[in-house]
Design a protein around this nucleic acid. Structure first.
Lengths: 186, 186
DNA sequence: GTCTATATCAAGATAGAC
DNA sequence: GTCTATCTTGATATAGAC
């Protein structure tokens, strides 16, 4: 069943959001799906393979979002920015952003996964760079502002915010969003 | 030797910065210090005890910094802000901020440690609240800005920035700092 | 305080039956 | 494709000698 594979994949993504790459186990998955560990190993021989599939999934998810946004004719940049912030919040679900989670576990990841995490981080950054550059052209971002620096700050703020949110058990995301918008528009 | 205890403590803090609570082991410490695991268990019976001692250390480190700053007569608020940002960057060393690391591992932490992480997060936030409120009184922060929201954003931006820094292998901290200052002053 | 030795357990992974 | 059974390794933790 090709469905089983994606079922495992989605649960594994959840677990990474929740506990991270190091802490989650094939046993977690097997119990939650009512399978044996051996079955999971059949679909993803090594934990590394599962991690790689997850990073692929994440990349495609972001790419798909960008395409669907660029296909919708003429969304104002401000709306695009809000949607991208919302998308990042949604991706975290009940946990933290899965990319942040992988970043935190970076030193324990297999080399191939480290590379994907690096590429994904760069890709995310590029998305923000593009959208912010567009915003600058339209005069939403002040001309004196260095876009690359702004992109670093925006993404860092969003990701960091989700980590605090979980620990503080307070929904600080609206406040983070407000400040991110303030940072962009000032 | 009371020294041995702090020696273990400091190395454990390093390891948390580098790999996180779940990923680091008593074996890592024993190898790097030339001890046996049993010796470490003598000083810190359980891993949880070691983690608790580390959170205490972190709390004291921040507290000490604040006291030393308030003792130095009449530092301008702007200088205080810069120093606090610098302090947060320094604390991360080669890895990420140890608090961010513990936040990422939150769901895997023993309950007592979770509580400390929550308290530490709140304490850090309170520090930023205090300093930003002071800055608002002096007109550095605009009066319309909600200080609590600003504090969330500032700290999130700093912490998130350090996670990206390690993965991107680029020193983006100056750029993060620049944007944090822009956020505060606008 | 530090050691050797060992118990216990969970994790990633494989072999082979169905 | 999924199972049972098993191997191997590494981790937390303890007992007891020095």
């Amino acid at each position: 069943m090709e469905n089983r594979k994606t079922q495992i994949l989605k649960l594994a993504l959840d677990l990474i959001r929740e506990k991270g790459y190091v802490a989650f186990s094939y046993d977690d998955i097997s119990k939650q799906l009512g399978l044996t560990k051996a079955t999971i190993h059949y679909h993803f021989e090594k934990k590394e393979d599962l991690a790689l599939a997850i990073t692929d999934m994440m990349q495609q998810s972001l790419q798909g979002f960008l395409i669907s946004m660029s296909n919708t004719v003429s969304i104002p940049v401000e709306e695009k920015i809000k949607q991208l912030i919302l998308k990042q919040f949604e991706i975290a679900g009940n946990g933290i952003c899965p990319l942040s989670s992988l970043q935190a576990d970076y030193e324990s990841l297999p080399e191939a996964v480290q590379l994907r995490v690096e590429k994904l981080s760069q890709f995310e950054l590029k998305c923000w760079n593009d959208i912010l550059r567009e915003a600058q052209k339209e005069g939403i971002v002040h001309n004196a502002v260095d876009i690359e620096s702004l992109a670093y700050a925006v993404i860092s703020c969003i990701k960091g915010g989700m980590q605090y949110k979980r620990v503080l058990k307070r929904d600080i995301l609206p406040q983070i969003e407000e400040q991110v918008c303030r940072l962009i528009k000032s």
